[in-house]
Amino acid sequence: MTDAPETPARSWLTRLAIYGPLLLFAVFVVFVGSQLGRETRVTLTSKLIGQPMPAVNLPGLGDAPGLTSADFKTGKPVLVNVFASWCVPCRVEAPQLAQLTAMGVTVNGIAVRDAPDDVAAFLKTNGNPFARVGLDKTGQTQIALGSSGVPETFVVDGAGIIRYQHIGEIRPEHIELLMAKLAEAGR
């Protein structure tokens, strides 16, 4: 069944049928490509940007001081990292948090629905990048922050206004972005 190559009449209809699928696919690829990297709209996050931090008054680990609203009125932008010892992505972002601390950034932690012993063990194995750690045993502070999962990281400026919300673990490629947001918040 070999076909003798033959050139059938090429009407515009034939051409459309032949090149149409390719064209449609090209449009699809361009569309998807343009969407890469653009974050899909998350209704709840955007509402918090520009809002003041909710009132925070959390106990600390053992004798260490906890986390209070005063820690966000220092005049210097800080990061707030919402984490938990039971969350694996939080383990993954530990080196990045350490790196941020090393770059001179103040990072405050909020441990969500966690036992003090577990948090202490977590910080011992993964390193403790936090200036202050607050224990949010009931998860109420997390909810007030509008965070719906762990880990999440917020940029809060010196006046206690939330400037940026990072959802999910901090990967190495996010450090630059967070530094930029911190610099912006410091202005």
Binding site: P5, T7, P8, I18
Partner: peptide, 8 residues
């Protein structure tokens, strides 16, 4: 697209 027109 290239070959379809040559298929008899």
């Amino acid at each position: 697209a290239l070959r379809a027109s040559t298929v008899a």
